[in-house]
Amino acid sequence: MALTLYVDTARWRAHQQTVLQQFPGLVPVCKGNGYGFGHERLADEATRFGSDVLAVGTTYEAARIKDWFSGDLLVLTPFRLGEEPVPLPDRAIRSVSSVEGVRGLVGARVVIEVMSSIRRHGVSEAELPKLHAAIEDVRLEGFALHLPLDRLDGSDAVEEVITWMDRLRANRLPLHTMFVSHLSAADLARLRQQFPQTRFRTRMGTRLWLGDHDATEYRGAVLDVTRIAKGDRFGYRQQRAASDGHLVVVSGGTSHGVGLESPKALHGVMPRAKGVARAGLATVNRNLSPFVWAGKQRWFAEPPHMQVSILFVPSDVAAPQVGDELVAHLRHTTTQFDRLVDR
């Protein structure tokens, strides 16, 4: 019995092709847990659709994936002086976000990240004049600009890219390739029209691999079903059942990522109100699970265990049977499946 990721492979790949046609020269990203599919699977997919570059998060990921992908490997985490050396092939390309970092990578292939409005890392406008001498000792693959997802101030993503292109050109820095992220196909068309001599390459992960939500589905197998009466004690903490029903043990626990949730940026009254309501329920041990039965997400009976979760199904709902599978609404980037089934 397992937590299974089911993939409608034909639909998933059709979505990939749609995205690739919209973004010529796209650089697929495979980082973290491989967006829920695993590094090896995404490396195979990138090879299948003919990508020449695969972007990974860290040097450690690059070292693991180098035997699964024969093209170039773009490491997205910027190089830092004094970092632990990781043996990588010459086809590895390092991101750099400082002049000192460029100087520390003599002879290496590099992509230089400039400081976007995200303000996470990157070479600043004031540092651009220092890059001239520094880039003479590296093999420059291009510049990169990592853009925000939301623009609450109404600013234009394309204008931000144009501003940086003008800055680079004013400092007589090469503009043959620009790596960008979080732009639309229409945005890229505008940039290509204004800078026909520059090759714009979109780095993309989430939209490429997870853009068609109906192409994938997690399901947890039911392992046990136990009838319980109101007032009966159960579980590790021996709490009492609030009403009659069934305890349903289902595959999928904390080791799979069940119960993990990242902080959300909430905008508007209703999302904030829902957040407050969820927090209030949690204080009385009422936590909604990701598992669905009879058309509704069911409550955790107690916090998820390492490899299973225990759900409470009320008596007015027919209980599932051992061997049934419950759909689970899980976040791909934090979930580890037991098995993947193509269909």
Results as ranks from 00 to 15, higher is better:
Phe79Asn: 10
Gly107Tyr: 06
Ser181Ala: 05
Thr59Val: 12
Val7Phe: 04
Leu26Trp: 11
Asn285Phe: 06
Asp244Gly: 07
Thr177Phe: 01
Ala319Gly: 01
Trp209Gly: 04
Gly154Phe: 06
Lys274Val: 14
Val123His: 11
His246Gln: 00
Ile162Tyr: 07
Leu210Asp: 08
Gly295Cys: 08
Arg201Val: 09
Lys274Tyr: 10
Glu45Asn: 13
Asp338Pro: 00
Glu325Trp: 08
Glu127Tyr: 10
Glu113Pro: 02
Leu145Gln: 02
Arg13Ala: 03
Met306Glu: 15
Pro78Phe: 04
His39Asn: 00
Ala229Lys: 13
Trp68Val: 03
Lys130Leu: 14
Ala279Ile: 01
Pro28Thr: 10
Gly107Arg: 06
Thr202Cys: 12
Val114Ala: 02
Val96Trp: 09
Ala46Gly: 11
Thr77Gln: 14
Val102Leu: 09
Pro290Val: 01
Val341Cys: 12
Val250Pro: 00
Ala319Cys: 05
Val249Glu: 13
Leu5Cys: 00
Lys31Pro: 11
Ala301Met: 00
Arg190Asp: 01
Glu100Phe: 07
Gly104Glu: 04
Thr206Leu: 10
Leu88Trp: 10
Val102Glu: 00
Phe37Leu: 15
Leu88Phe: 10
Leu260Asp: 09
Phe300Cys: 10
Gly34Ile: 11
Ala133Gln: 15
Ala170His: 02
Cys30Trp: 07
Val138Asp: 05
Arg298Cys: 14
Ser70Arg: 12
His332Asn: 11
Arg219Leu: 03
Leu20Val: 15
Gly104Asp: 04
Glu159Gly: 09
Ser98Arg: 06
